[in-house]
Structures are given as structure tokens and as C-alpha cells.
């Protein structure tokens, strides 16, 4: 369950941002969690509420977005949607391909007051 410590990282980033931008409360947090990111969205939601207690993001709601995983084949120059990281290229059979989308794990935006 490493989502708990990832939530602590999220909290630190938000608290730093609160100092920079001078907001006192966060209503909503948008997180991008790619399908290849090794982060479990349900575990993340669970940890989020617990970890944000006592911070500017206490009680904030979480929106989790996700873009499909895509990879580029260096051998045949095609870009395809993939299900998992180490699949060989479905067009030419060569692998592994270069991941170009789907491994992100980031805070996209905040709604603050």
C-alpha cells in the first residue's frame, strides 16, 4: 500500500503551493493517474481523506482522470494504444516500445479559496 506515502507527497506539494499562492483552503484536487503508473486509484482515494486531515486540503474532493496508454514503436514508427507496458509492437512484433502516454502520476489542478 504505497498510496499512503504518495498521499503524503501530494499533501506536501499542496501545502507548499498554499504558501506560494496564498490560498487557505482546497475544495477540489484533480489528479491524473495513468493506467501504467502503478498507482491504484481506489487506494489513493482511501488514503487521501486520511492524509489530508489537518491540512489546507482537509475534506477536499478528488477527481481522478486517466488517459489511455500509448506507445511508439521505434522499429516501424507506429503509435498504438497498449494494455500493458512490455507488450511487443502489434504491427511489426518488435519490442519493447517507447511509452508516450499513460504513465503519468500528477496533480493537474486545484480549486482553491
Amino acid at each position: 500500500m504505497h498510496e499512503m506515502s504518495l498521499c503524503e507527497n501530494i499533501r506536501e506539494i499542496i501545502e507548499e503551493q498554499a504558501k506560494l499562492d496564498g490560498f487557505s483552503h482546497v475544495n477540489r484536487v484533480w489528479l491524473e493517474v495513468g493506467p501504467l503508473s502503478c498507482v491504484e486509484p481506489d487506494a489513493l482515494r482511501f488514503g487521501f481523506d486520511v492524509v489530508m486531515r489537518g491540512s489546507v486540503a482537509q475534506g477536499a474532493s478528488v477527481e481522478i482522470t486517466s488517459s489511455p496508454a500509448k506507445a511508439h514503436c521505434l522499429a516501424c514508427q507506429t503509435t498504438v494504444q497498449i494494455q500493458q507496458r512490455y507488450d511487443p509492437c502489434p504491427t511489426c512484433g518488435v519490442g519493447p516500445m517507447e511509452i508516450i502516454q499513460g504513465d503519468a502520476f500528477k496533480i493537474s489542478k486545484l480549486e482553491v479559496v
Binding site: 507527497n9 501530494i10 506536501e12 500528477k106 496533480i107 493537474s108 489542478k109 479559496v113
Partner: peptide, 17 residues
């Protein structure tokens, strides 16, 4: 009753580690 605003962060969470 202050206005809510949005802040675009686009911050990689693993960057902390």
C-alpha cells in the same frame, strides 16, 4: 464567501521522491 479559483499545477508527484 470568497470566490473559488482554479490553479493549474501539472506537477509530477513522484518528483518529490
Amino acid at each position: 464567501h470568497s470566490e473559488a479559483r482554479e490553479i493549474a499545477l501539472e506537477r509530477n508527484i513522484m518528483a518529490k521522491n
